[in-house]
């Protein structure tokens, strides 16, 4: 479901599922939590391949952000369409920094 890549000490997590919904949210949360527990605290989540996210998926993201705590960063890259719309609608665009692509997210987190 996820593939990871370390760039300038920033962990880029690409989601290969097209939908993050209630059936996928628990596994999604577990996989990212493992990365956090392994010591990663600068994370970029690449959602460019994701077409749909529901409130369970969004809740899983918030849970990961809380796990990271105030010293960590979780940025979102490449959200479009229904995914970006849900972030705006729920005001989660104020909670997560949204970037148009992975490069700009990594640049900001590694600066």
């Amino acid at each position: 479901m996820l593939s990871t890549d370390l760039r300038n000490n920033v962990l880029v997590v690409r989601v290969s599922e097209r939908r993050i919904d209630a059936s996928r949210a628990p596994a999604f949360k577990d996989e990212i939590t493992k990365c956090i527990e392994a010591g990663q605290n600068q994370i970029v989540l690449d959602l460019s391949g994701v077409e749909f996210i529901d409130s369970s998926g969004l809740g899983a993201l918030v849970s990961c952000l809380k796990r990271l705590g105030p010293r960590g960063s979780l940025a979102v890259a490449g959200a479009t369409g229904a995914v970006s719309r849900l972030f705006t609608l729920t005001r989660m665009d104020k909670v997560f920094t949204l970037h148009p692509n992975v490069d700009s997210a990594v640049d900001q987190l590694s600066a």
Partner: peptide, 8 residues
């Protein structure tokens, strides 16, 4: 304060 559920 950020909600993880109860949004549906």
């Amino acid at each position: 304060e950020i909600p993880e559920g109860g949004m549906g």
